[in-house]
Design a binder for these strands. Sequence first.
RNA 1: CCCGGGGUGGAGCAGUGGUAGCUCGCCAGGCUCAUAACCUGGAGGUCGCAGGUUCAAAUCCUGCCCCCGGAACCA
Length: 521
Amino acid sequence: MTRKFFITTAIDYPNSRPHIGTAFEKIGADVQARYRRMEGYDVHFLMGNDENTVKVSRRAAELKRDTQEYCNDMANQFKEVWRALDISFDDFIQTSEPRHHAGCQKFIQKVFDNGYIYKGSYDGLYCDGCEGFKTEKEVKEAGGVCPDHRIAPVVRQEPCYFFALSRFQDRLLEYYEKNPDFIQPDSRRNEIVTLVKTELRDVNITRLGQQWGIRVPFDPEFTIYVWFDALLNYITAIGYSAEDARFAKWWPADIHVIGKDITRFHCALWPAMCFAADIEPPRSVFGHGFVYIKKDDASASEKISKSLGNVIEPMEIITKFSSDAFRYYFMRECPFPGDGEFSWERFATAYNSELGNKLGNLLSRVTTLIINNFASVLPGTAGQTPTPIAPDLAGIVRQVQRHMEACEYNVALDTIVQQILVPANQYAEKNEPWKLVKTDKDATRLVLFNLIEPLRAAAILLKPVLVRSSETIYHSFNFTQPWEKVSYADVASRPAQADDMRVIAKLDERGKVPPLFPVIR
RNA sequence: CCCGGGGUGGAGCAGUGGUAGCUCGCCAGGCUCAUAACCUGGAGGUCGCAGGUUCAAAUCCUGCCCCCGGAACCA
């Protein structure tokens, strides 16, 4: 029986284009989704945009555009970037869609009927320019005024509905206790546990007098506010209250991949909402770190922000290099559970050293030796199995799997490079097939046969990250198993070669395999 | 003040009780099949500080110092 795996990312506000920070999250989730598919899981990978916000309708108004049309346009732009990055999402939800609206209304009605929503009033700092409340922090950071309009906000009281979050304290703590893997990485657990123990307050979940947004079914003057709307995308997308079989198949989510800053909403508010509506809470939440920009000429790294002018468009890296190079850099150099940095200098170093010199160059030297000395075919290797170069291949695969499943991609990649690629280059150096071929062609044949094996292993292990080039490597040879079917288990237990091993890659004008990752100068 | 995370050779990262490891950079050699790539050797760290537990601590405990982050339309 195949196991299902439902994975989601945070939904993004479409009031600006995606940057490398948002891309980091999608890549990390995509690697997990692709890995699980290889491992035989039935995967459903959900992404989307969060459109029911004042900012979005205001932005559309600024551009003199219809809000819905603006949202659709932005959603297309986001999807275009994600596709260029080879993000393999199965569904992309826009929270302005009818399926989301209908599901939200059913959900909030259910929670209301269950008695967890009550009417009260909200005091806050209101800006007339924004026609909305500002957070204390926003106002404080701007020096006591609205950061957008530079005018002092006034204290305003407004009726609203509260969600009785505080009533779920015990159930939440019990859930954390019984599900130690619910909050990931472990380093985020304490923070949430102490938060829930000490600071759990009821939350305002409605807004008054907004045109854009989802109506509260039991009081249509109000719209559903903030997280109570956004979080529900995870269930409305899979048919909550509309397609029961589909919902039952995928829920609960196996992992919500989100930024560390919104861990609390996903680990406290969201499971409480699930309890309140009588559905299961998600199985786990992974709060990843942030990517900071390091200027090539400065020592300090800074937060990505438009005002600092340091936004790097994902498309810039993709078109200059490749989506594989983009994916590899972030997965290799930025620990997913922690924070990372981007600089063009670091990008070039990581790319050249590992992708170009260790992996790409290995493919080049091995294929050239076979092409030049054996006319591309290693005779008599049909029915044979190569002698492994790495002493404990099965152990290495287990290590990589452990790290992949914990979203420790940087460590997984380090293991692949150190345990597979480095030993392969060492093996080549030790056996010197370019010399050996002059005295013992038969022995050379076996050395080269063995040298292809680490390329096969690396291609399979790197498949979730290097979507395209791993396939290029694999299809440079006539391996017996079809690429679409390979799994991590196939790395250590390899079927015998069906036909004589040969290089089947398309050659360039030099008669060689084209460089996989041309070195950056 | 309080809460959370972190401090490992020049830079970036592994490493949760048993001779401190990897990448980049630097120095010296080898090789020449390969994308001027690859391989070998070397310099460079009292693992933030001070105590404690232990036969044994980067790793466990206590205190302190420093950096980052800290609620609500911010990945």
